[in-house]
């Protein structure tokens, strides 16, 4: 490898990240929740006439993390093992509104699988020519 400190600093971190992720590639988990998440107060930035223009992501997420009293309900949970064994959990007694949430959960599973494939492609590119 190149003897280059400037690069190695970044590359060292990069390699650690990849190694950590590879360890956990044996399964894929997707969870969907609903909860009492509202954008208001200092989290919402408005124009002079009150029209919302943007919101403070960091502040909202800090709020979510710090406020242990926000109740989240699990709508769907999917676990896919490396050998393709799959566990699906879906909330009971679905209302019409809940069905939309379940469909959204399915799309999120698809998005997670796509991302996983992308990550594997990265690993494939990294090890190309090494064997």
């Amino acid at each position: 490898m190149a003897d280059n400190d400037k690069v190695n600093t970044g590359f060292g971190k990069f390699k650690d990240k990849i190694a950590a992720a590879i360890e956990d590639l044996s399964s894929l988990q997707v969870s969907t929740y609903t909860g009492d998440l509202v954008i208001e107060g200092k989290d919402l930035i408005t124009t002079g006439d009150g029209k919302p223009v943007k919101f403070n992501t960091k502040s909202i997420l800090d709020h979510v993390q710090k406020q242990g009293n926000i109740k989240f309900k699990l709508v769907g949970y999917t676990y896919i093992d490396v050998d393709s064994d799959t566990v699906n959990f879906v909330k009971e007694d679905l209302t019409e509104d809940d069905k939309v949430l379940v469909e959204a959960h399915k799309t999120m599973v698809q998005a997670s699988q796509e991302s996983r494939m992308a990550f594997l492609n990265l690993v494939k590119e990294l090890i190309k020519g090494k064997f």
Partner: peptide, 19 residues
């Protein structure tokens, strides 16, 4: 005043939260 959040791990596990 509601929002949807998707949070991915580096290994692509994900959590999806909706108001």
């Amino acid at each position: 005043k509601k929002l949807a959040i998707a949070d991915f791990d580096i290994d692509c596990d994900s959590v999806f939260i909706l108001s």
